[in-house]
């Protein structure tokens, strides 16, 4: 099957290695991976800021680039949710584009969900020695139902010990533009998340969304925690951590 990787704008800019780890995992699961080169952003920042016209423009661009492939896979529950859940409603007024959005939607997956539910990956390529705690990102968890998939994959790595934190399913305070519009509230929420992370004593905090990870890493370091690693699930599964 031909899988088109939606890299996400944050991974493109901040952590390309997550994109390469995702390619490695998809290939390990037997997929042919294509990276459409004109992709940019799914448009979620505009959508959540109330700029519906800009969001619709970028939605059409993304649909056109990804609809030729069997699947769209993103190393982000947030972006996958935007494309899968929100695009059809966003383009509801335009029958042609609405139809194309719906046709794409059912083929859109977050990375761990795709590896477990669709590609049914057999061998996890990476190795990691140590304890990890998993933060559930909001859109992935509550909209796409991503909870067991990353944990199932981690459980298949012999060196990994999962230590669940209190409130793993609570928001980290990122919220996209919320993090820069209401910085002090966002930081206060992040601080609670980081306290819960540190309380587990885990060697690494792992999540499926880079937005959350940048927020958590930024707060951990400002709090003086230099030792907790902050990793994307793809990095740990692919062994690039």
């Amino acid at each position: 099957m031909r899988v088109a990787l939606f890299v996400t704008c944050l991974v493109d800019l901040m952590r390309p290695r997550i994109g390469f780890a995702a390619i490695e995992l998809l290939e390990a699961a037997g997929c042919e991976v294509v990276v459409p080169e004109k992709q940019t952003c799914c448009g979620q920042p505009a959508y959540n800021s109330g700029d519906r016209a800009s969001a619709a423009m970028l939605a059409k661009k993304t649909i056109a680039e990804f609809e030729p492939f069997d699947y769209l896979v993103a190393p982000s529950g947030s972006c996958a949710d935007q494309i899968r859940t929100e695009y059809p409603g966003l383009l509801a007024d335009d029958p042609e584009w609405h139809g194309r959005a719906v046709a794409l939607a059912s083929r859109v997956h977050e990375l761990t969900d795709f590896l477990v539910s669709v590609a049914k990956i057999e061998k996890i390529p990476g190795a990691f020695e140590g304890s990890v705690t998993y933060h559930d990102s909001c859109a992935g968890l509550r909209s796409l139902g991503i909870k067991d998939q990353p944990r199932a994959l981690l459980a298949r790595m012999p060196g990994v010990e999962l230590k669940e934190m209190t409130g793993a399913d609570e928001c980290c305070g990122f919220g996209g533009t919320f993090a820069v519009k209401f910085g002090d509230i966002s930081t206060a929420i992040a601080a609670k998340k980081c306290d819960n992370v540190v309380a587990t004593g885990a060697d690494a905090v792992v999540a499926g969304d880079l937005g959350c990870l940048l927020n958590i890493e930024g707060k951990l370091r400002r709090m003086g925690d230099e030792k907790t690693k902050v990793l994307h699930i793809a990095e740990i599964l692919a062994g690039d951590a």
């Binding site: 390309p16 993090a179 820069v180 966002s186 930081t187 992040a190 930024g218």
Partner: peptide, 23 residues
């Protein structure tokens, strides 16, 4: 993004974009 860095660090990027490295 002053509201970000008032209470948090902003992690540095890896150095090049994914699209550069992929190419």
């Amino acid at each position: 993004a002053p509201e970000w860095t008032a209470g948090r660090d902003f992690p540095a990027p890896q150095g090049k974009t994914f699209r550069e490295l992929y190419r």
